[in-house]
Every structure is written in structure tokens, then in C-alpha cells.
């Protein structure tokens, strides 16, 4: 059976991708952020996951408002990025695992999570930045991927509790897959930031630090937050924290051990977070 080896969560700000493309990791502005990643990469090198389930939000590349799924999962043989309107570089394609995708689809729909399924799916910076940070775009790519996109573009967004429960079902689905694979779940986005409105530039360090602590030790305490609460306390785009909650839900069938944590303000307009939790037992 497949084994869920751990969960990682990281911010996915587009400026990180540009900093990587321009080799700015040691630049004074960027160094404190990038310095959080070596322990995570060391863990990945040791544990060697075969598959990464990447929970992200599409920022208007693959999905438009004509058809906006709340939950959408990839079932493609490979995934490509695109320039997103800003001239971003094409990255090497990300190999998929359609058999695993369809297993997850079967199990999640059976658990009452009715996902949209995508045999073609462009992946944007929400997906590619974490992949670049964690696996550094080494080719051939070390992991196969299953992208799982959650709507954060158009309200109503799914609640924190709903997303955590999706994660719980995802964790069970992963561990019922009949192949000896090591699987990691990657939550992306957050932490506090707001791009739009007169409150643009809002960052809430205190709330972010509480979320980082609670998601490790007391995730239940976060589940009564509403989307409105998240927007108020973490900013409009800080609601992306629901993607971290999917990751944490997936690990709920195990105990967790915290391996790495980093918080840094600012990365672009964002309070940037990084967390690595290893499954115990």
C-alpha cells in the first residue's frame, strides 16, 4: 500500500519564481526566505517521495469565471506551466500519475467530495513555485504529481473545515492505493497578504504565527474560522490558508513530527511561511 510520508506547506508567491529564475537566492532581501529550505530538501532527499499531491489555487490561468470548480483534480499524464501574462519561462513538464489520480477521484467521490476532473490542466505559479523550491527543477523530475486546485478566486470559497475534511479523505485515499509508493502532500499559498483594495499590503504577523503553531499542534482550533474570519485576519489572499488545511487534514490519520518551520516578512506583499511535518507511526 502507498504510504503518506509527510506534508509540506509553503507560500507560492510569483516573485519567488522570478528570484529563482534570476539567481537571487543569496541576495540580502531573499536569503532569509530561501534559507528555510535546505532542511526540507534534505528530508526529501532522505525520504524520496515517489508522488507529490500538490494542493494549490489557480490564479486565472487554467480556470476562468465561465467554469469555476470549487475542487478540481488533475488526471493528466503531464502538466505544463505558461507565461501567465507576465512572460514567465516555460519549465520542464511535470509528469503526472493518472492511475493514482483516478484512484483518488474514485475514493474522494465515494467519500462525498465531488471533484471536477481534468485530463488537461495548465499549472500556474501556485503549483510551480513550490515545486521549484522543493525539487529545484532538476530534470528528469524526481516525483510524479497530482495537482488539486481549490477555488480562491470567486466567493463563496470552501470553508476551512470543509478543506480540512477533504484532506482527511485524501489521506485515507492515498493510503488505500495498492502500490508501494511514498507520497507527500504539499499545501501551498498564504500566509497573510492582500493585493486588492485600500487595505492592500495588509500583513498580520501575530495571526500567521498562531496559525503556524495551531496547524501543527491544534488543527481543530482552526476549523471554526470562517472564510470571512480568514479574510479579515489574514487578508483577502491570506484565505489561501485553506490549502494548508487540506495538507494537515491528510496527515490526521498519523501523528506528526515537526521537522522544519520558517516564517519571514515580507516576501513581496506576503508573510511567507514554510512547514514540514513528518508522519509518525
Amino acid at each position: 500500500m502507498a504510504k503518506l510520508v509527510g506534508g509540506i506547506a509553503t507560500s507560492h508567491i510569483p516573485a519567488i519564481g522570478l528570484a529563482i529564475a534570476n539567481g537571487l537566492q543569496q541576495d540580502a532581501y531573499w536569503k532569509p526566505f530561501f534559507d528555510g529550505f535546505p532542511p526540507v530538501r534534505e528530508w526529501l532527499a532522505r525520504v524520496k517521495p515517489d508522488v507529490a499531491i500538490v494542493i494549490y489555487n489557480d490564479h486565472g490561468l487554467n480556470f476562468f469565471l465561465d467554469k469555476m470548480p470549487t475542487f478540481a483534480i488533475g488526471a493528466a499524464t503531464e502538466y505544463r506551466n505558461a507565461d501567465e501574462g507576465w512572460g514567465l519561462k516555460a519549465l520542464a513538464p511535470f509528469p503526472g500519475d493518472p492511475r493514482m489520480s483516478w484512484h483518488l477521484i474514485e475514493e474522494l467521490v465515494a467519500a462525498d467530495f465531488d471533484l471536477s476532473t481534468c485530463q488537461e490542466m495548465l499549472v500556474d505559479h501556485g503549483f510551480t513555485v513550490p515545486m521549484s523550491l522543493l525539487w529545484q527543477d532538476v530534470v528528469p523530475r524526481a516525483v510524479r504529481v497530482v495537482p488539486l486546485a481549490i477555488n480562491t478566486v470567486q466567493h463563496p470559497l470552501p470553508s476551512p473545515r470543509r478543506c480540512y475534511n477533504l484532506g482527511v479523505a485524501l489521506g485515507k485515499a492515498i493510503e488505500s492505493y495498492p502500490a508501494d509508493l511514498r507520497v507527500v502532500v504539499v499545501g501551498t499559498g498564504g500566509l497573510s497578504h492582500q493585493l486588492d483594495g485600500e487595505r492592500a499590503g495588509f500583513i498580520n504577523r501575530e495571526f500567521d504565527l498562531r496559525c503556524l503553531d495551531d496547524i501543527v499542534n491544534r488543527p481543530d482550533e482552526l476549523l471554526n474560522l470562517s472564510i470571512h474570519d480568514l479574510v479579515e485576519q489574514a487578508g483577502s489572499q491570506g484565505a489561501e490558508f485553506i490549502l494548508w488545511l487540506v495538507m494537515r487534514g491528510a496527515l490526521s490519520c498519523h501523528g506528526v513530527r515537526e521537522i522544519a518551520r520558517k516564517y519571514h516578512i515580507p516576501v513581496s506583499n506576503t508573510g511567507a511561511g514554510l512547514l514540514l511535518l513528518e508522519s509518525v507511526s
Binding site: H155, D196, G197, R199, A200, F202, V231
Partner: peptide, 9 residues
């Protein structure tokens, strides 16, 4: 929420 547009229906 002050200064915070909510993109809804």
C-alpha cells in the same frame, strides 16, 4: 471589512 473587496457573485 474596510478596504477589502470580496469578489462574489
Amino acid at each position: 471589512i474596510w478596504g477589502t473587496p470580496i469578489f462574489d457573485g
